[in-house]
Design a protein around this nucleic acid. Structure first.
Lengths: 223, 223
DNA sequence: GCAGAATATGACTGACCGGTCATATGACCG
DNA sequence: CGGTCATATGACCGGTCAGTCATATTCTGC
């Protein structure tokens, strides 16, 4: 979608531009994100920007697509180990992966979540895809688990997938707030150290436990 | 916070203005909501608006406060019957009340949820209040329930309150989407409200059941 | 060194924004 | 009637925006 000129750019310059652009659209909604401010921060002329992208919308959709790809990659790296250890292990991995993404790449995470609640005048397929990225995973997970007998047979599968999706999307923010973390980007390849902390892990297990056995008083007697 | 002039306005005119204003801020984020567009829609002169409110921010905070009061009223009406029937009945009532508000007053709901994910340059106490309105209820509910023995004593109460809050905030949207989708399967002509109500009720009970007993396979044997 | 293509530049345009203000309208009162 | 005060009005201001374009610079192959 960007022009050939943009793709021809020396990589450091291109990288720098993308970084600044992500920051701009992570910190502002589409309408109030400013190309003028962006090019000033990136240190290029306004005219140059319009040699890279035809307009603001094109840049935005490009960034969304980029963030989406990044998130899928990130989640896939987590997904490897799971799935054959049973539903709740896989669920643990799913929740952890999503939270880790939010903590490790908060700008991309914010960019995506802005897109979901978006004002933007054009609703693109990409947005729908983003919206359902986690939902799809959750639905598949639930479906397999019911077939395997890990879950109650009387469970409303769609409802269960909804619950998981919502928690997956929100748990990262909750964790950050509760552990009082600051939103700085983590170099790729490293996990955010906080997730390996005992407190974070305990919360993950608590959440999984809650989902598996419920919060009712009777449940603990059998767990 | 509005001027005396605004309060002196004949009620139909004031009501109409408020309605248009709510619509404007429900459909746009703070920055891209436009006073010019607002006054055009409301059929008043720009100068008149600035006789009613000192500036955009004041109108916005006034609308938030109004929406918040409306929501509290709405939730209170639901709260009456609950609380002495045990935790899960109260939880049912809480979830239902929140969902009902979203469905009954979607513009106010959107206004509030925009405020939560807000870009707005000034973070006011009101915003924090909104943010924690449901959370407070959930926390109190959990605290009482643990003391009463309705909930597992080993439960992380803060985590449980988080789960409830998130579900309360999101379930309305899910319900609307799901009931509407299933409604389309019904042949045109009649859309029996009893059926959708029944379906909605079933989903509420399913959700409560899930929270009480969990989604694990073992849970059903004892439930 | 040179032509021609690719790229960089920032002043400029037209539109819209929040907010102001001089002026107009109308209501109430003597 | 006239005077005073609350209210209504929209042209206007300075600022920012997305997007354009004529011009300047840099790169490429010969």
């Amino acid at each position: 979608m960007p022009t050939q000129t943009f793709l021809n750019l020396p990589e450091p310059k291109r990288r720098r531009f993308i970084e600044v652009a992500i920051e701009e659209f992570a910190n502002h909604h589409y309408r109030s994100a400013s190309i003028s401010r962006l090019v000033a921060k990136a240190g290029i002329a306004k005219g140059s920007f319009y040699q890279y992208f035809h307009n603001k919308k094109e840049l935005y959709l490009y960034l969304i697509e980029l963030a989406l790809r990044e998130k899928l990659d990130f989640l896939s790296r987590y997904q490897q180990q799971a799935s054959h250890k049973g539903f709740f292990a896989a669920l643990h991995s799913l929740l952890q992966a999503n939270a880790a993404f939010d903590l490790a790449l908060p700008r991309l995470s914010r960019l995506i979540s802005r897109a979901l609640s978006g004002d933007l005048p054009y609703k693109h397929e990409i947005i729908r895809r983003v919206k359902e990225m986690v939902l799809q995973r959750a639905q598949n997970l639930v479906k397999e688990a019911v077939a395997r007998g890990d879950l109650r047979p009387d469970l409303d599968q769609d409802l269960a997938a909804f619950v998981i999706t919502v928690l997956a999307n929100e748990f990262g923010g909750y964790l950050a707030q509760r552990l009082q973390l600051e939103g700085h980007d983590v170099p790729p390849g490293q996990n955010p150290p906080e997730l390996t902390q005992e407190k974070g892990q305990r919360l993950f297990h608590q959440l999984i436990d809650l989902l598996q056995y419920g919060m009712g008083a009777r449940a603990v007697a059998q767990g």
